[in-house]
């Protein structure tokens, strides 16, 4: 068994995850990346998507919002706007939210209000990730 390292998943609303794991897979802006022990120190943005960690040959998945991630020799720190474990996802609720957000997207002018547009677009990605994860169970 490979050596373990520490991973922390933190949101503005509190610490979601803080434990020793075998590996993580995170959605970086330049594509998904995996981290094992001894990874080169790295700093990157996280885009909304699915974050998972590996522990005793099983992947545990989380839906995460935008943020960033710092990889150090023995720690991975992920700071994101939001994070949800698979259990906490309500598929119906997520579907409803998706419909609502898509309606908002149509109403908003992407050029005039680009920050807001971006924000909602990120929300949509999070919700879509939620639905796909809930559907996979």
């Amino acid at each position: 068994m490979a050596e373990k390292f520490k991973v922390e998943l933190v949101t503005p609303r509190g610490i979601v995850l803080d434990r020793m794991v075998d590996g993580v897979i995170a959605p970086g802006v330049m594509g998904e990346f995996g981290v094992l022990i001894g990874h080169t120190p790295m700093l990157t943005f996280i885009k909304p998507g699915i974050f998972s960690y590996l522990e005793s040959d099983r992947f545990v998945k989380y839906v995460v919002g935008a943020g960033f991630c710092e990889v150090l020799k023995d720690t991975v720190t992920v700071l994101v706007e939001e994070a949800h474990s698979v259990d906490s996802i309500d598929k119906n609720e997520a579907s409803e939210e998706l419909v609502m957000l898509e309606r908002q997207l149509l109403e908003i002018n992407a050029l005039e209000n680009s920050a807001e547009y971006e924000r909602i677009l990120n929300r949509v990605k999070v919700v879509k990730a939620k639905i796909s994860l809930a559907g996979g169970n």
């Binding site: 970086g28 802006v29 080169t40 120190p41 790295m42 990157t44 943005f45 150090l72």
Partner: peptide
């Protein structure tokens, strides 16, 4: 500390 890898 060690040098960082930046992405982007």
């Amino acid at each position: 500390r060690q040098a960082y890898l930046y992405e982007p």
